Amino acid sequence: MNAPFLHIDRPASSGIAHPRTGTATVALIVPVHNEESAIAPFLAAVREHTDPLKQAGVAFDFIFVNDGSSDATLDRLIEAQQADPRIRVIDLSRNFGKEAALTAGLDCCDADAAIPMDADLQDPPHVIPLLVEKWREGFEVVLAKRTSRANDSFLKQRSASMFYRVHNWIAQQKIPQDVGDFRLIDRQVIEALRSLPERRRFMKGLFAWVGFRSATVEYSRDQRSAGQSKFSGWRLWNFALEGITSFSSAPLEVWTYVGATISAFAFLYGLLIIAKTLVFGIDVPGYASLLVSVLFLGGIQLLGIGIIGQYLGRVYAEIKQRPIYIVRRKYDGTP
């Protein structure tokens, strides 16, 4: 029996000319959570760099996904949508997380290409024309790579570097270092991402997993224009665990070798005790070394059980098949 595969064709009649040669539509997908002060500066900066591209045959839409904001973010978005019909607002029923919000934006995107980006302007809008230029050259994915993390704290810089190294060392699917969600993806890539059924989503890994021809544009990451980061150290730690467990089973498999190594040393140590007993007679057992050995092996076992629990929890979430997100309402100017 042949293995299943996914084949994606560009729609034959979408009402839009081929994006490489004619008029094309690009959607900016912007997940927001408590970003009321960032909406107006973001739109002003983005329009400054996207409006001139109309002369080159590229029109832009804006898809904002309100991820359960508790401030006036939704009000600011509705006001912006009423003033600009190109803006669509997807209001989720609660805070589902950035990965779910980004998925909601991709599911609602009907443009020829999409650019996920943050509203805090750390993803600089002046890079957008460079992404579009590479896309029109024929690349389905155009990555935006940070050349510097000078605006991040020392701890965040080191932890990010360590994450990429560990992930790419143990995972089958590598992810490009210092590349976030900010990138341009073609319609084919969007359709491929929509076909993936998993609910615990690590979008950086999924972007890399679907493949397609890619190019890279480098940029320097700017300071936040407003607000503050919603990612605490604990959330970043869980985010890293999500990435590693989503694309690697090495943390599970390594315990086979850990157990085999400990068993081999225990067997050799047992042979040594037998030999010493036969030669020198019965030795007084060492209670301190025995206690250390018991505590060490107990810690190893609990650590292994904890790693199994990480994977089992993700399997449990997938089996329940709950939706990735729930839309409360859409604001797009349609009746």
Rank of each mutant, 00 (worst) to 15 (best):
V30Q: 07
V58I: 02
A24K: 03
Q55I: 08
S69W: 02
L28E: 11
E79T: 07
E35P: 10
N34E: 11
A44I: 07
S37Y: 11
A38Q: 08
L77H: 02
D75I: 04
T50Q: 09
A45F: 06
A72G: 11
R86A: 11
I29S: 09
T23G: 13
G68I: 02
P85D: 12
L28K: 00
G57N: 04
L43R: 03
G57M: 01
H33T: 09
F60P: 04
G68D: 05
Q82W: 13
A83Y: 04
L77A: 02
A40K: 02
A59T: 10
R47F: 13
P85G: 07
V65L: 09
N34T: 00
D84R: 00
P85V: 11
A44W: 03
E35A: 11
T73S: 07
N66C: 11
T23H: 13
N34Q: 05
H49M: 07
P41W: 08
V46N: 06
F42L: 10
R86Y: 12
I39G: 03
E36A: 15
E48I: 09
D61Y: 13
T50Y: 02
R76A: 15
K54W: 09
A80P: 03
D51H: 05
H49E: 15
A24T: 08
P85C: 04
L28C: 07
P31Q: 05
L74Q: 08
D61G: 14
T73A: 03
H49G: 07
T50I: 05
I63N: 00
A56H: 15
P52C: 00
V46M: 12
A56M: 00
G68S: 10
V58Y: 02
P85N: 03
R47Q: 13
A44E: 15
T73F: 01
I39H: 04
A38H: 05
Q55T: 04
R76Q: 13
E36S: 14
T73W: 02
E79I: 10
T73G: 06
K54G: 15
T25V: 15
V65R: 01
E48S: 15
H33S: 14
E79Y: 07
Q82V: 09
T23C: 15
S37G: 15
L43E: 14
A72E: 14
P52K: 03
I63T: 03
N66Y: 08
V46K: 05
R76F: 04
L53W: 03
A40P: 10
L77D: 02
L53V: 04
F42T: 08
P52M: 00
N66A: 12
H49D: 14
